[in-house]
Amino acid sequence: MGVKVLVTGGAGFIGSHLCERLRDLPGHEVWSLDNYSTGSEANHVSGVTYLRGETKDIAELIDFAPDYIYHLGEYSRVEQSFEDVEQVWRSNKDGIFAVLQFCRKTGAKLIYAGSSTKFGDGGMGRSQSPYAWTKATNTELVQNYGTWFGVPYAITYFYNAYGPREIASGKYATLIALFKERRRKGEELTVVSPGVQKRNFTHINDIVDGILLVGQNGYGDEFGIGSPESFSILEIAKMFGGEIRMLPERPGNRMTADVMTEKTRALGWEPRHSIRDHIREFCDSLDT
């Protein structure tokens, strides 16, 4: 019998890469459930079955029992979450409850995408935005369902993923993709003050390597998947070159994050990519 896998948020940046890799594993059947708030049909990969809908409706939308559920389909922007708080609640709180109840019913192992904001600024980051708080408290609920109802789970934490299929424009654009787009157009790079806030930019291939290892062999919490290299946003902007314009400070903008990768490394994971090399290759391509 084949292995049935459901990826929520499978049409998004990280989810589409995960679906692609899962599809290539022998005997795996892969489904995606996505509401397309940030996902795109342009991210669809062949051999994956795509369903449109909200994770809070998972029990009505999924008519089979998955062996694994990779739950990536939640609202995932810090600064914007202050404006979108109702959407954050529907996606992150109503969604996780429905997914956990579905796992409890079907026996699926849950691999939950937590947020590294939980570890930001010495632990204070967990309450700095509606997004951060919902994600941090969701990890506690996942752990409790494991204790209360025997739901098998593993919780991962991604650190600033970058690579192909990033969102390059609009409200939900990610930093590296936004900088690339502005650099292509010869526009100035905008950096939110103070600019010294540090991030651990991690290539999408390294992220997916880690997710798959945790899905197969990880149980419990604190499976961080992040590059050990940290750079300030200003340092990243300077790597791209060109003019830089500072923007006012914004709420929820953490300054640091503790990268906790020990448990993931114990499974055999190692990051293989560097953001410095990635930016250099991109800039070199503009000059050819």
Rank of each mutant, 00 (worst) to 15 (best):
D221E: 10
T55H: 02
I62N: 01
V191K: 00
V214Y: 00
E29F: 08
Y112M: 05
S129M: 06
V45S: 00
V99D: 00
E270V: 12
K171D: 07
Q216L: 11
Y159K: 00
E166Q: 14
I58C: 03
A177S: 13
N205Y: 15
L141T: 15
E41G: 07
L18R: 03
R104N: 12
E222A: 08
N205T: 15
P194I: 10
I207E: 02
F240H: 14
T264C: 09
T147K: 15
K4N: 09
T8D: 10
F158A: 04
V259C: 02
G125N: 03
F240E: 11
G150R: 08
L178R: 07
R23A: 15
H28I: 11
K180G: 02
K93G: 09
L286F: 12
Q80P: 13
S32M: 07
G146M: 06
D63R: 13
G268C: 15
G120P: 05
L141Y: 08
S46I: 09
M1S: 15
R276N: 07
I58Y: 01
R272T: 06
P66M: 06
V214M: 05
S81A: 11
R23E: 11
Y162R: 00
K263C: 11
G9C: 05
G15N: 06
T8E: 06
G114Q: 02
E86I: 11
G218L: 04
R265V: 07
Q87A: 13
V208I: 09
G47R: 12
S91Y: 08
E86P: 08
S274R: 07
G95Q: 03
P152M: 04
C103T: 01
C103N: 02
N160W: 04
V3H: 14
D209A: 12
T264M: 12
E29W: 12
T288A: 12
G10P: 02
L267C: 14
K105W: 09
G73T: 04
M260Q: 12
G9K: 04
Y112T: 02
A154C: 03
I176L: 11
T55Q: 03
E270G: 12
Y112G: 04
T190S: 02
R90P: 02
F13L: 09
S76C: 03
N144K: 15
G163I: 02
Y172L: 07
K118I: 09
G73K: 05
G27M: 12
G215K: 13
K109A: 13
Y68K: 09
T55I: 07
F13P: 00
E29R: 06
P164I: 09
K171T: 06
S46V: 08
N35G: 01
F179A: 01
N35V: 04
Y157W: 05
C283R: 13
T106Q: 00
R21N: 05
L61P: 02
Y153D: 01
G195I: 05
D258I: 12
V3R: 11
L18P: 00
T190Q: 08
K238G: 11
V214F: 05
S129P: 03
L213P: 00
R52T: 14
Y50E: 04
